[in-house]
Amino acid sequence: MPLPKPQKTLSFAESSYLVEVIKGMVLTMGHLVKNIIDQDRFRTVEYPDVRKPMTARYRGAHRLTVRPDGHVKCVACMCCPTVCPAKCITIIAGEDPSDPAEKFPVEFDIDMLRCIYCGFCVEACPKDAIRMDTKIYEINAYTRQDMVHNKSYMINLMDGLKPEAEDVYRHDPAAAPAGYTSDEEPVA
């Protein structure tokens, strides 16, 4: 097999490297000078102090939604553990005789160490019971056990959060897309 031809033969100036090296150095120096003069050119976010506004589609920590009567919306249908590719959701179902929904999760644990934040659980949920709209990305703990988020943690996750982490369309329902229902309905 004939060897492929080199695409371009270098001129003498190019093959001596020097000219090209100087061209490159002029380029990098240009960036350096520009950045020293105007330090607001950087796109870097100075993270713990400055935070990026998260988009509405951002998949953060999971939360469980509740119905106006205070019951958790989840009916333990097991769609999310079934669809979960990381197998990080564990639900133990139980029966609530007082609740017309009959079935509810006695335990609902998500192992955040195994979770890959794919959002399939949210897609699969027929009851809009699990959401990843908290925009919480600082999910950390000192022990493995603490990285397993349980039912009450996920129900209360949104308490006392900054406004930007709340329901994006709650204050501006007109901007919401068609068919969007806010989770924070007034309790009947």
Binding site: V75, A76, C77, K103, P126
Partner: peptide, 8 residues
């Protein structure tokens, strides 16, 4: 009732 139905 599929989410809560044992038959599903």
């Amino acid at each position: 009732d599929c989410p809560i139905c044992d038959q599903s």
